[in-house]
């Protein structure tokens, strides 16, 4: 390979021109409370798994809304579903159900 002195990397932009992924839309339909999140970070602050890993539910939810499905799915796997986040969430988001759906979402519509 010829070295041109630089490498071309993929754009870091989140493409907001794309429509929301149908799988995500379906997920939001099945757990509408996900739309309530204001990303206050409380869920991440109390997170049991977050003590050991970078588990941050509000970020998963942002990923979902920005269409970053694969990142979201991968990050959701650390969750223990303990429900502490849900107890303290000021907006009453059903986080456990949300993460459960996130962990099994696929590119094909099947949530």
């Amino acid at each position: 390979m010829i070295n041109f002195g630089y490498t071309a990397s993929e754009s870091r932009h989140i493409d907001m021109d794309e429509r929301l992924h149908p799988a995500i839309e379906k997920m939001l339909h099945r757990e509408p409370s996900l739309k309530e999140c204001i990303a206050c970070g409380r869920c991440a602050a109390v997170c049991t798994a977050g003590y050991f890993t970078g588990m941050q539910f509000y970020r998963l939810n942002l990923m979902a809304h920005r269409g970053l499905i694969n990142e979201m799915k991968q990050a959701a796997r650390a969750c223990m579903l303990c429900g502490k986040c849900q107890m303290t969430c000021p907006k009453g988001v059903n986080i456990r159900h949300g993460v459960l759906l996130m962990s099994q979402i696929t590119d094909v519509l099947d949530v």
């Binding site: 049991t48 798994a49 050991f52 890993t53 799915k73 796997r77 650390a78 969750c79 223990m80 579903l81 303990c82 429900g83 502490k84 459960l100 962990s103 099994q104 696929t106 099947d110």
Partner: peptide
């Protein structure tokens, strides 16, 4: 199809070995 992975728990916490009457566990 739910897919979780908790392998990160390996070796994450210190194991204490102390003799005691009661082990108190308060949970999440």
């Amino acid at each position: 199809k739910a897919n979780f992975d908790h392998r990160y728990l390996h070796g994450t916490m210190t194991l204490w070995r102390d003799t005691t009457e009661v082990v108190l566990y308060t949970g999440c």
